[in-house]
Nucleic acid binder design. Structure first.
Lengths: 152, 152
DNA sequence: GGTGAAAACACTCTCAG
DNA sequence: CTGAGAGTGTTTTCACC
């Protein structure tokens, strides 16, 4: 879909806070509420806006242990890749999984409570998946920045 | 703050979709709308719910090039670390920055349009930051999984 | 494509129990 | 936590620019 400058500005606002009133967005964009209302509906229907979600504080729910785990498969057959990805999707602790270029095949971002929980996750869930050759985990000492907004 | 089982269930629902009506959450939780209304307000005020945001499709806004960039600093003085982190926060293309354990010091997640834009970003923005020793970039071939929800 | 008003509706929020 | 009521925002349509 074609997006003009106002659409991008609106998306920026919605990526920061989606619970304001249409009136307020209209004010910030210098448009009428109707115009903004219709733009939002259009963005929703076109799939540009995928969903509206609540962001939860890691500290408040006691899930502050973030791990990045690089994974190498033993063999890169189509079947192995498919099966690995299917299994990873089932693991709720894995919040992101990227098929990467470079030395390692995959990068997983895992969110758990502490090192003990991570060990349990590794032993009973992750390494239970077939075709994994090797893994390398790095732990987040400090989350310097985290944004869910796509830069526009 | 203390969270009971209902709070966690409610947070799960809100992490998936925050635009439903209180009535609907009440129905799914088997409570009255008022009870759910007050729980949500409590979660907001305690900071457990940090914000409500729109999630935007990468494809639809033409920002499908995701890069993970490992960074090593030349020297780990307190001043270097502070300055590096301050500079990184200013870069809108960087959606995540983690201070990591292991070989490299930082892991950055960068979202741009294509390889050309990434090169520009590297040359004119990232490498302009002081104290960077070496970098290593991996490109996402496929985003297998991406969730903004913390597993609860 | 945008505006402004108005009507119908639904939800938020408060309060008494 | 419940249920009902008052207040408010959304949603839709309309005539018009």
């Amino acid at each position: 879909m074609k997006l003009d400058a106002i659409d991008l500005k609106l998306l920026c606002l919605l990526q920061q806070d989606c619970k304001k009133t249409t009136k307020e967005y209209a004010h910030q964009l210098g448009l009428s509420t109707t115009a903004v209302y219709e733009r939002i509906k259009r963005l929703e229907k076109s799939g540009t806006i995928k969903s509206y979600v609540a962001l939860v504080g890691k500290v408040e729910v006691d899930k502050t242990f973030i791990v990045f785990c690089h994974i190498k498969l033993v063999q890169h057959t189509r079947e192995n890749i498919k099966q690995f990805e299917r299994e990873v999707l089932k693991l709720e602790e894995v919040v992101e999984c990227h098929h990467l270029s470079g030395d390692y095949d995959y990068l997983l971002k895992i969110v758990v409570r502490d090192m003990g929980d991570y060990r349990n996750f590794m032993v009973s869930k992750l390494t239970a998946i077939n075709h994994i050759g090797s893994t390398q985990s790095s732990f987040t000492i400090k989350e310097v920045k985290h944004s869910t907004a796509i830069p526009l």
